[in-house]
Simulated scan of single mutants.
Amino acid sequence: METTRHFVATVYVVESGAVALHEHDKLDMWLPPGGHIDRDELPHEAALRETSEELGFDVALLAPEGDLESETARSIPQPQHFLLEDINVTDEGVGHQHVDFIFYGEAPHREIDPEPGEQPAGDWEWFTAAALRNRDDLPADVAEVGQRAIETVESEHNA
Rank of each mutant, 00 (worst) to 15 (best):
L55A: 05
V59N: 03
D40E: 15
E50F: 09
E50N: 11
E53Q: 10
L48S: 06
A46C: 09
D38K: 13
E65S: 09
D67Y: 08
S52Q: 14
A60Q: 12
G56E: 04
L48P: 02
P43L: 02
L61R: 01
L68W: 08
H44V: 09
R39N: 13
P64H: 06
I37T: 02
T51A: 11
S52E: 15
E45C: 08
L61Q: 04
R39T: 15
E53F: 10
T51R: 04
L62N: 10
L55G: 07
V59Y: 01
L42Q: 13
R39E: 15
L61H: 00
L42W: 11
L62A: 11
I37H: 07
E41T: 15
D38M: 12
V59H: 01
P43I: 05
T51Y: 05
D40M: 11
L61K: 00
G56L: 02
T51F: 08
A46L: 08
D38Y: 08
S52N: 12
L62Y: 10
T51E: 08
I37R: 04
T51V: 14
D67N: 11
E50Y: 07
L62G: 05
D38C: 10
S52P: 02
D58Q: 12
E53L: 14
L68P: 00
R39F: 14
L55Y: 06
G66N: 00
R49Y: 05
R49L: 04
D67P: 02
P43W: 00
D58T: 13
L42V: 10
G56K: 04
E65Y: 01
I37Y: 05
E50V: 07
E54M: 13
R39A: 15
S52R: 14
A60S: 13
D40L: 13
D67E: 15
S52G: 10
A46Y: 07
R49M: 05
G66D: 01
P64K: 02
G56D: 06
F57I: 09
L61D: 04
S52Y: 13
R49P: 04
L61Y: 01
F57H: 14
P64C: 01
E41I: 14
L68R: 04
E50W: 14
R49D: 06
E54N: 06
P43F: 02
A47E: 03
F57M: 15
A63I: 00
D58I: 03
A46K: 07
P43K: 01
L68A: 11
E50Q: 13
